[in-house]
Each structure stands twice: as structure tokens, then as C-alpha cells.
Nucleic acid binder design. Structure first.
Lengths: 120, 120
DNA sequence: ACGTTCTTCAACCAACTGGTTGACGACCGG
DNA sequence: CCGGTCGTCAACCAGTTGGTTGAAGAACGT
């Protein structure tokens, strides 16, 4: 699971981490500030942040004692690109199937939608 | 981790499962057929399919001995919606920041950009 | 130099994951 | 009914994950 896409998906599979990303979309925040709403230790939040950082979803600065967290929103495009690619593909296939069915308007029974086998 | 969004993200965090989805975008397939390219047992593939099914990403029919697998592409929209929401938000914030920086050519600088506390 | 604050490191633990093998269930084709 | 083929269920195992507590860094303010 070393490829970035997997890491990004995995990082966002956790509701807490997703919420962090959502809040970071409104602006940078410190670890402590990020941890406030959640009912877990600050250390746990720090671990979540490490996951997000390893996935490339956030970067971190260094301001006095704090380590401000910054959302790297471009990485989200990676996912959108992947998703849209296959969603579109499935849609096109669906459209082709519709076309085939439409062409079948001859009054023959369509009891068996004939599995398409080679729907050319 | 019971919410669907988490399940969908988790399901796609695995390269094998992502590849299955990619192939299913080109058309339905049986378990055996799906398993062919991978160097794992058929049972393992069956498990992967269960994960995808629980996430709502695929559905399964029943044709003779086989269980044809079908991609439910609409679920992908769930993710796209989530991602785009926050990507856009981050982008807008970035745009606002640019505006602020542009406006800062006036000789007044405010060290502390007012942190915004808790903006609902 | 000292104490305080913010954050991370380390060790540990329960639960989940992704894989295995072996047995079983469902459905043809005789 | 019987022998294949396709797929799932069950038990098990190693590795990862998400959480805990306790101690240690790192950077102020005084």
C-alpha cells in the first residue's frame, strides 16, 4: 500500500480525519486547536495528522511552539481524476447499453436481455 | 466505521480492489474471471468483492453457477461530492488570501490575520 | 536558567485486514 | 443420482491501525 492514491483513500476512510480535512479547508490550524472537538487524546490526533501528512494531504509549518497544519488541496485532484475516469467509463457503457436496448424496439419479447456477450 | 462514505474510501484504498472497479467499469464479470489477473486465491478475491459490495460499489446477480458482478457507479458520486466540496472551499480560501495579499500593497500591515475563531 | 505550553516519540493493547487452506453449498450436464 | 465447476463460509495467522499512558523535545516568557 505504498502508492499515494491508496494512502490518500485510506487517510480519508476515517471520519475523524475527514472532519479534520473539512475544517482545514477553512484555514490552517494548530494540533491542539484541531484536537479540541474530538473525544480522544492529543497524541491520537497527532497520529491522525501523521497519516494525513504521509498521504500528502497536509503539510506543517513551525510557528513558535506550534506546528500549524495546512491542507494541500491539490492532492484531492488525484482522487477526483481516478474516480471520474471510471465513473465516466461506466456511464458511457451504460449509454451504449441504452442504445442497444433502444434499437431492440422491434416487437420481439425481451424476456432474456441476452447478456450482451459481444454488444457491438 | 459504519458510514458509507468511510466504507467507500476504505474499499478503494486497496490497489487490487481499485483495479477490479476499473475493470468492472468496462462491463460485468464473474468472480473467476475477475480473479484471473491476480496472484491470489479465488477466496481472497471473493473477500475483496464482499468489501466492495458492503460499500455499495458493486451488486451481484445469479446466473447459473456464476455470480456476475456489476459496478454501481453512482456511489462514486458520493465521494466526488465530498472531495469537491472541500477542494473548492480550500480554493476559495486561497483566492481570498490572494486578494488580501494584493490589497496589502497599502502601507498598512496587520501582523495577525484575525484567526476567525469558530466560523460555524 | 527555569517553568510552561505545544507537540511528538515509545511501548503497549485490542480490533481489524488481507491472505492462506480446507470444507461445504449451489447449480449444471450427463 | 453423480461428478464437475463456481463461489462462499470458517478457522487461522501475520501485519496494520487506532487508541491509550508516560516521558521527552522544542520553543517561548520571565
Amino acid at each position: 500500500m505504498t502508492d499515494q492514491l491508496s494512502q490518500v483513500f485510506a487517510a480519508l476512510a476515517d471520519p475523524t480525519r475527514r472532519d479534520m480535512v473539512a475544517r482545514l479547508a477553512d484555514g490552517d490550524a494548530t494540533v491542539g486547536r484541531l484536537a479540541e472537538p474530538y473525544d480522544v487524546s492529543v497524541q491520537a490526533v497527532s497520529k491522525h495528522l501523521k497519516v494525513l501528512e504521509d498521504a500528502g494531504l497536509v503539510s506543517r509549518g513551525r510557528k513558535a511552539q506550534t506546528r500549524p497544519v495546512h491542507l494541500e488541496a491539490e492532492v484531492l485532484d488525484l482522487m477526483t481524476a481516478w474516480i471520474e475516469r471510471y465513473r465516466r467509463r461506466a456511464e458511457e457503457r451504460f449509454a451504449r447499453l441504452d442504445a442497444v436496448l433502444a434499437e431492440m424496439d422491434a416487437p420481439e419479447q425481451q424476456e432474456t436481455p441476452q447478456k450482451k456477450k459481444d454488444a457491438s
